[in-house]
């Protein structure tokens, strides 16, 4: 496991000219939306904030083609028609895997959550499919509910972008001219400068932020 990660990450840092843009986003509307939605539901129908982030990243990727696809040595960037977000899952005892949720655009938020639960369960049991390990078109790595506030990730080649999302932190925030306590997350997008520039990454981040702040649209 360590050797496979070492090989992929060394290749990424040697061959991909990474650059990074960050934005801190108010997630109280998303947290409130999920709390209200989950309150009356049995456990197997509850949705986690992480699924909402994957859904938002999936829809944002449909709007900015330069974030979604593969960079192939002899052809350059090959955009993908489908969005297969790789979902980073930390493994006990070290290491991590990022199996892909295949064709996530066609899923509802509920189906996205069910698909992620299935990926996590199978990752724990060592039953991921080979296709899931190679068909990711963009990676989403979120630190869960506790942990550091930001992460600047390494792109998983041959992909060209990674969405790194820190854990929510309570911070003073200005809403309608007034300072109020809000849960915020810091999103850092790692992108491949052979494929995209700051303008495209900023568009992706703006789309992601819009989607997260109107969770009912997901």
């Amino acid at each position: 496991m360590r050797k496979a990660i070492a090989a992929a990450m060394t290749r990424a840092k040697r061959t991909i000219p990474h650059f990074y843009l960050s934005e801190t986003i108010d997630v109280d509307p998303a947290i409130a939306f999920l709390e209200e939605r989950n309150a009356g539901l049995p456990p197997d129908r509850r949705i986690l904030l992480g699924a909402l982030f994957v859904r938002a990243a999936t829809l944002a990727a449909t709007r900015v083609q330069a974030m979604n696809g593969h960079y192939v040595e002899d052809r350059g960037f090959v955009p993908s028609e489908v969005v297969n977000p790789g979902v980073a899952i930390a493994l006990r005892g070290g290491g991590l895997v990022a199996p892909a949720l295949i064709d996530a655009v066609s899923m509802t938020l509920e189906e996205t959550m069910a698909g992620m639960r299935d990926l996590v369960s199978r990752a724990r049991a060592g039953r991921l499919r080979a296709s899931e390990m190679t068909q990711g078109t963009i990676t989403v790595s979120s630190l869960g509910e506790t942990g550091a506030e930001a992460m600047t990730g390494v792109i998983f080649p041959p992909q060209v972008a990674l969405v790194g999302i820190g854990a929510p932190h309570l911070r003073p925030w200005v809403v309608a001219g007034v300072v109020v306590p809000r849960h915020v997350v810091t999103l850092t997008l790692s992108a491949d400068h052979r494929v995209s520039d700051g303008r495209q990454v900023a568009r992706f981040i703006a789309a992601f932020e819009d989607l997260v702040q109107t969770p009912e649209s997901l």
Binding site: P43, D44, L48, G50, M116, R117, V120, R124
Partner: peptide, 16 residues
């Protein structure tokens, strides 16, 4: 034990 939030939900669903 390093369960993540998805594992916790799977545990809660299993107990249910």
């Amino acid at each position: 034990l390093e369960l993540d939030s998805m594992d916790v939900l799977n545990l809660v669903a299993a107990l249910h």
